[in-house]
Amino acid sequence: MWDELDRIRRWWLADGYLNTAGAKVTISADGVTTLSRGGWTVIL
C-alpha cells in the first residue's frame, strides 16, 4: 500500500493538486478498493 500512496504523492507534488474529481470507485466483495480516472488506476 505504501508504494501506491507514494505514487499518488508524486502525482500530487508534480501537478500541485490531486485530481480525483470524477474518479470511479469500486469496492469488491473481498474489500479491495479501486480508484480510476482517465489513464490512472490505484488499487488499495
Rank of each mutant, 00 (worst) to 15 (best):
L13G: 02
A21V: 09
I43Y: 04
L13M: 11
A29F: 03
L35W: 15
M1P: 07
N19G: 15
T34W: 01
T20E: 02
M1E: 11
G38W: 11
W11Q: 14
G39S: 12
A14D: 15
L18S: 02
T26I: 13
T20R: 05
D15M: 08
D15E: 14
T34K: 11
I8G: 01
R10P: 00
L18V: 04
G39I: 09
Y17W: 12
E4M: 10
L13D: 07
D3G: 13
T26H: 03
A29I: 06
G38L: 04
G39W: 10
G22D: 04
G38H: 05
T41E: 13
G31P: 05
G39L: 07
R9L: 12
T26A: 06
A14S: 10
G16C: 07
D3I: 06
G16L: 07
L13E: 13
V42N: 02
T34H: 02
N19W: 10
S28N: 06
Y17D: 04
I43F: 00
G38Y: 08
G38I: 03
T41G: 00
D3P: 05
V42S: 03
M1A: 11
W2V: 11
A29H: 10
R7K: 15
M1G: 11
V32S: 05
R37L: 09
L35C: 00
M1H: 12
I8E: 06
L13F: 08
L18W: 13
R37K: 15
M1K: 08
I43S: 04
G31T: 03
I8Y: 00
L5P: 01
L5T: 03
T26D: 14
Y17K: 12
L35F: 14
W2K: 15
T26C: 03
L5R: 12
W40N: 01
M1F: 09
W12V: 03
L5W: 12
T34S: 05
T34N: 02
R7C: 02
V25S: 01
G16D: 03
V32F: 03
Y17I: 02
L35V: 08
S28Y: 06
R10W: 03
L18H: 02
A29S: 13
Y17E: 07
A29Y: 07
D6T: 11
E4Q: 11
T33M: 13
G31F: 05
V42R: 13
D30K: 13
W40Y: 12
L35P: 00
W2Q: 14
T20K: 02
I27K: 11
S28G: 10
D15Q: 15
L13W: 04
R37W: 02
I43A: 05
N19V: 01
I43P: 00
G31Q: 08
L18M: 13
D15S: 07
V32I: 15
E4P: 00
R10E: 14
N19E: 15
T34E: 04
G39K: 15
G31L: 04
T34D: 01
T33S: 02
L5H: 10
T26K: 09
K24R: 14
L5S: 06
L35E: 00
L44C: 08
T26L: 05
V32W: 10
G38K: 12
A23S: 12
Y17R: 11
W12E: 13
S28V: 03
